[in-house]
Amino acid sequence: MIAVVKELWTYRELVMTLVWKDIITRYKQAYLGVGIAVLKPLVLTVIFTMVRGFVGIDTGKIPYTILTFAALLPWTFFQESCAASVNSVVGNAALIRKIYFPRVIFPLTAVVTKFVETAIYFFLLALFMVWYRMSPSGHAVWVPFILGYTALVSLTLSLAGAALNVYYRDVGQLLPVGINLLMYASPVIYPLSLVQKKLLVERALGDWSAFGYRLYTLNPLAGIIDGFQAVMLRGEPPDWGILLPGCVATLVLLPISYAVFKRAESFFADVI
């Protein structure tokens, strides 16, 4: 584990240069430039707000629009970084066939690139907060940790995904679809409090309710999104009880995913 981090540290400059290249080339000939990046969570926020007009979702004191945007921020980061890093190895085939450096650099670069783009979302979130006259509390110091954790979750999925994608290109197509579905199993459109109310208070699943809730929080995104909303909007520290199951799942799966990637990487150049 330490060896892995150490090796990556020696390549930090390469990662930063590749991130810089990714960002610069994406927006070089686009007039809207970086602005285009914020469009996605913004449009989704508008749509969800409209949908909410029909179905009615209780969000307590916090306005639905900003709550959803605060959910979409880590979610979009997760989704985009996953999609980008799953395709990162195949997308860099020309490099992989010719030069050696740890292949893990490619998925990592994709995630870091999205991390930088996510910074733009914060401007938008700040605008929302000014509009709704909310101010962040001191618990906002948790934000970098929450996003860092999100990056690890994203790598958990995409390392194995990127390696498999070299052999079966279907993975690069299917994984983003799967992640889109995962959104409905994450507290994006609805707040986590609603899930808690349904399962823990109303016990909608009967005897299985507690198990169902455990299963729900096994999805790391549940803890991430709720944690993000807590520290940014509610002014509370993250709820560790919700974060823990997802954390455990990530800690178990990330090394496995990394091992799959490492095992496959020696033959990338032959197969790609």
């Binding site: 240069t17 290249k21 610069i24 490099l95 066939r97 030069i99």
Partner: peptide, 19 residues
């Protein structure tokens, strides 16, 4: 191998150098 068509010559030197 690591050159990118959208970057300038100078930027490519930095990119390729890093690679």
């Amino acid at each position: 191998a690591g050159m990118h068509p959208d970057l300038t010559g100078r930027e490519n030197i930095y990119l390729n150098g890093a690679i």
